[in-house]
Design a binder for these strands. Sequence first.
RNA 1: GCGCCCAUAGCUCAGCUGGAUAGAGCAACGGACUUCUAAUCCGUAGGUCGCAGGUUCGAAUCCUGCUGGGCGUACCA
Length: 667
Amino acid sequence: MAVEWLKFMNVLAEIKQRFAGVLGSYAESNNVESLLAMIKPAQDSRFGDYQANCAMSLGKRLSRAPRDIAAEIVEKVQLDDLCDNVEIAGPGFINLTIRDDYLAQQVVQALADDRLGVPAVTTERTYVIDYSSPNVAKPMHVGHIRSTVIGDSLARTLKFLGHQVIRDNHLGDWGTQFGMIIYGYKHFVDLDAYAVNPVAELSRLYRLVNQLVDYYKSKLQLDLLLEQIKIRQEKIEELSALDLTGDESQDKKLKKSRQRAATQLDQAKSNYEAVDQKLSAIDNDATLSQLVLAHPDIAKSVLLETAALHAGDEENVKLWKDFLPKCRADIQKIYGRLDIEFDVEYGESFYHEMLSGVVQKLRDQDLATDSKGAVCVFLEDFDTPMIVQKSDGAFLYSTTDLATIQYRVAQWQPDEILYVVDHRQSEHFQKLFAVAQSWIADSVQLRHISFGTVLDEHGRPYKTRSGSAVGLEGLLDEAVAKALEIVSADSGDGNSEYALTTQQCAEVANAVGHGAIKYADLAHNRTSDYVFSYDKMMALEGNTATYMQYCYARVQSIFRKGEVDLEQIRVTADSVNLDHSAERLLALTLARYAEALDEVLEDYRPNQLTSYLFDLAKRFSSFFEQCPVLQAEDDAIKLSRLRLCDLTARTIAHGLDLLGIGVVQQM
RNA sequence: GCGCCCAUAGCUCAGCUGGAUAGAGCAACGGACUUCUAAUCCGUAGGUCGCAGGUUCGAAUCCUGCUGGGCGUACCA
């Protein structure tokens, strides 16, 4: 059955299937796949709907004229019922135009299908997705959004396509930050504040201790920076003492070096100033400077508190057990707002007791060896080893990650584990995967779904320290507030027909505000860095979630006005009319939803779905302008257009849902 | 030093294992609301795809070198 659906529901897959047999006669079996990959949507509508580019490639391989081969292929492939125009163009492109009645049939079938014509996969796989994974005691900030939102969307998409998915939030619930909080609690806690709002107080303690630790770190850094400035200044002097030789390439190099040295000096200076400012800010604060003086060994003490916790110190463990649920509940609040869910949340602490076993096992298998007091796994292709136990006996995140893989494999036997983590950790994962493969020697595929850095308006990475990083919660609040402003303004401009109640305004603002933030993230190719800009994201026009939500609301408005019985038009659908070019284009796009989802999973890129949805919404808007629905020239066309509206709205809502974004009935 | 990634329109970004005249969205300019929601639509303008070579019928895409930027680089996560 699933195969039947596949044949009917995915136009591209259907075309490929038609070509497969014929192409097979030209190529080795292992090449058929690559030839089929050359069949794709046409880049330009003048070339039809789909194009097959395999004849050129075959021409070279077989030393024959590509156009002849193309003609031969076209002759043999059975396309009559699918295409009404098959052309050979240019050097040997095969351009295909899909028949209107075939497109209409796609729409009709999707209308009556809860899955909107998207087939479930025939071979179901099991995925573990590791995403979000914040440190529980630190306030979440913008940097956390990508992993959370991308991971969530991939999980939704995989699930919808019929895979088994285990969503695992690998919380940082066992690290140094708890040492900080414990130290802070022991020395600075305001018990009244803690009673009223424990998480806010813990967060204050974290920031405070972090600030004090940072002060001493910066102090050390300051000397180093001074030294650096001196060295760089000397280098500049050295370089300027050199005379130009007259040799063109050498002189060019010298000039480059001078320039480079100058910018490096500038950098060092501005670094120095930044650190210096940070320090004097504390020095000038009476309370803070006193605290700094009173806790000179704070960095070391924090480490000791952490170590004590890990060693099972009664008091620290008790505090940790007290703090943890409160912190988790706080994070949960944000997940609730963002509609993010997990199947399990096994944080780092969950694996704590397995770590010594991991190291022992690595030793037993001669994978790990002692080096400079630490336990290391040396790997080919890497200059540095993966350290699994420090010289002081403490374990590291690599150890935890290995334990985690071991556990996941034993527990769920996944086919694939996806780590949605930023690209800076790619070397870590390369090592981790290399060790895990030789260690567990399992067939599980391990994959780092890396993503780029979120940059600020100046193109610099968002900073996590110094408290100046934008908290995620505040960010969401601002987005919703901004959306509310726009909704309320629109609603209050006298057009009573579309005026929304306060309650409705709030709902719309929620969907629009949160949607804007998620969409801005998902719409970028995950591998590139992107600039995070409130203004752009909350412009709520152009390529934003709002555009899609607006399309959806417009359709609902038509249904309300026309008092349309949706169930009726879905079930009774026998055909749709595609005579108008806007209708046809819309239907073609609707029929491609399954293709878009395939593209998402091809390389785990949700931006394939956002661009599909934007495309769909644009085509709907164009249709909406050109094709009256309720006022259509006759009832048959009206019904046909209502069906196109219905499928569009459902596809948009469904696609947005896979992105974790909601819709509203009216806006 | 070594490794990984990036450079596309004024700005922010797409561009799917090489395919036809490189695309969007903002911003700019010109049009369209007594007609299903103008959070919209239609149009105009805007690019030597960082530079130089190479591979081939064909390169933003693959290879080499260069320039400029980001990140990582033995006991943080």
